[in-house]
């Protein structure tokens, strides 16, 4: 890509990333949540990759990392849900933490935790799909 695209991508990526994290963390207070925030974070990485990345080896390394973090975060979300079996009333997806006051950042029990891990999972999955397409294209051209 040209110099202008690279410079603008450099300036903007950080803000998009921060906005995605804000959307994820405030998912139980304002519009948004894990799905929206995860997609925005993935969008920040996609912008960065489109502007800079052409190195196949680096892309493959990145793809291994995203695939791994996706698997780990969905496992943690499943374990959080399964922990409801052992704490309080024995129900899957039980909200076992104290709910707190409506409107506080730390409130709503387990919902912010689910938000965070689903956000990581969505971001990593979308990025994996995108990187797989890109690596395929590079390998065809070789």
């Amino acid at each position: 890509m040209s110099l202008i695209v690279k410079k603008v991508a450099q300036l903007i990526t950080g803000f998009i990333f921060l906005y995605g994290i804000y959307i994820i963390v405030h998912g139980h207070l304002t519009p948004g949540g894990g799905f929206a925030g995860g997609a925005i974070v993935a969008g920040a990485y996609i912008l960065q990759t489109l502007a800079f990345g052409r190195d196949t080896l680096l892309l493959k390394k990145k793809e291994t990392n995203t695939s791994l973090s996706e698997s780990i975060s969905i496992l943690i979300a499943l374990m959080l849900a399964g922990a409801g079996f052992f704490i309080g009333t024995k129900v899957f997806f039980n909200n076992y933490l104290p709910t707190g006051k409506i409107g506080d950042l730390v409130s709503a029990g387990t919902i912010p935790l689910y938000n965070i891990f689903i956000g990581i999972e969505v971001a990593a999955a979308l990025l994996t799909i995108f990187l797989a397409l890109l690596i395929y294209k590079e390998e065809i051209e070789e």
């Binding site: 998912g27 139980h28 207070l29 304002t30 519009p31 948004g32 949540g33 979300a77 499943l78 849900a81 899957f92 997806f93 909200n95 709910t99 707190g100 006051k101 409506i102 409107g103 409130s107 709503a108 029990g109 387990t110 919902i111 689910y114 938000n115 689903i118």
Partner: peptide, 22 residues
């Protein structure tokens, strides 16, 4: 009242309908 979440959509999504999300 039951989940303590101000955003009702997130409350439904991650508590009452957790299976859907999973």
């Amino acid at each position: 009242a039951k989940t303590g979440s101000a955003n009702l959509v997130t409350g439904v999504l991650f508590d009452f309908r957790g299976y859907d999300t999973l």
